[in-house]
Design a binder for these strands. Structure first.
Lengths: 222, 222
DNA sequence: CCCGATACCTACTTGCGAGTAAGGCTACGT
DNA sequence: ACGTAGCCTTACTCGCAAGTAGGTATCGGG
């Protein structure tokens, strides 16, 4: 019989899988490739290869390159925000809330370096329709931080100085976090908690206090 | 003369100019176009058009697109660093030095928005040979800030807390400045000094002090 | 006045990668 | 058992922009 052989003679036909699974694989591959080469230098061919599927499927499921990228941003940003929000416990004093949020952030970055690269480096640069998606996510992050900072205001009678300055300060803090995360990529020996503590000290105590060796320390519960 | 008319009949042959001048014009145009579209979406044709010269001249003088971009980065980054360094006066106390440096930085950004866009948004994203150029500049900035912070150490007996943490804190501060500068692009009503003061307060006093309405203020001399 | 060098141009080639046309295989419902 | 819906592929088109070939004007010096 011609069917005597068992080895699949076909080059390697991919096994049929349900759409949802394929979409996940594709986005996974896309995040990885985008993270490696950047949006423009990433080719759909390579993404399809990494995803283990042929190019037309990507177009069928996720649409054009732009759409695919937007899907990556959306998924990863959502995950990041959820991680940070999940780390915050509302009952706590404001410094602890901030501390928990920062720590969650750096833990996420440590666990998802590729996601972070895509989010931070790539999406900011492109002027396309991503800006919308990305800026909205970034804005949510800033608002979240601003909210935590302002909650301080309700708890302790906050001074005008802080209350007026909420959003820009939140922007600065978010930027500091992003930049520190980048710096961290070159100094991986540090732990997420340690990085978070550095930033916490800068932002909560200020250099003025650091000069006098007054440092902030996380509470008992780790 | 038989050439009674003065108007040049030719379509508009560019006037002959020395190489140095052309190079300057080309880089000017390139910064503007890169800033507008980003590295990849900027076309050499458009740059040549804006520069008022034909494409081959660009290749003759500045080399390939990559080289041109690198030249832009190099020039703008150098200008920025010089502006910041020029704003610092070494005799002053550390907080004043920091203050002056920040103010110079934001003044530069205000005066050269296009340069800033190229430096901050574009160069970070590309994974190419720019990274080298850019990272080196960024590193110089971080080192500079770290130096200012550490000088604090010599003047006042600085605590271990601050001295160990110099570089990462400088990275965070630089990032905070970058991010604030971005935020500023959407809120142009503020003055450079006001933005610098916001950051100064965050970074020198910390939220802890801000909560109690303790703010940092620049000295007399504006 | 001539000649080499330098500034400058028009008009092309070329490669790369996004996106698609057209069709084959498999599974499951009826 | 068979048709149809959905998974999957190979093998193209085609536009765009980087980079170049080859030639023309103008300047300065001998």
């Amino acid at each position: 019989m011609s069917l005597a052989d068992d080895a699949t003679p076909q080059p390697a036909r991919a096994k049929r899988l349900p759409r949802a699974v394929r979409e996940r694989q594709i986005v996974d591959a896309a995040v990885s490739v985008f993270s490696k080469y950047g949006y423009h230098d990433a080719s759909m061919d390579e993404i399809s290869e990494v995803a283990g599927i042929s190019k037309p499927m990507i177009y069928a499921y996720l649409g054009a390159k732009e759409d695919l990228f937007a899907a990556c941003i959306h998924r990863e940003a959502t995950l990041l925000l959820e991680a940070v929000v999940g780390g915050i416990e509302v009952g706590q004093p404001p410094d602890v809330q901030l501390w928990r949020g920062l720590r969650s952030f750096f833990e996420f970055v440590a666990a998802h370096r590729e996601s972070w690269r895509v989010l931070h480096r790539q999406s900011i640069a492109q002027g396309g329709p991503f800006t919308e998606e990305l800026m909205s996510m970034r804005q949510r992050a800033i608002s979240l931080v601003a909210a935590v900072l302002m909650r301080t205001g309700s708890d302790e009678g906050v001074g005008e100085a802080a209350s007026v300055a909420g959003e820009p300060l939140a922007a600065a803090l978010v930027g500091a976090g992003e930049s520190l995360a980048d710096w961290w990529l070159d100094h991986p020996e540090e732990s997420p908690s340690s990085i978070a503590a550095r930033l916490m000290n800068l932002v909560w105590m200020g250099f003025g206090n650091l000069v006098e060796d007054r440092v902030w320390k996380p509470p008992r519960d780790e």
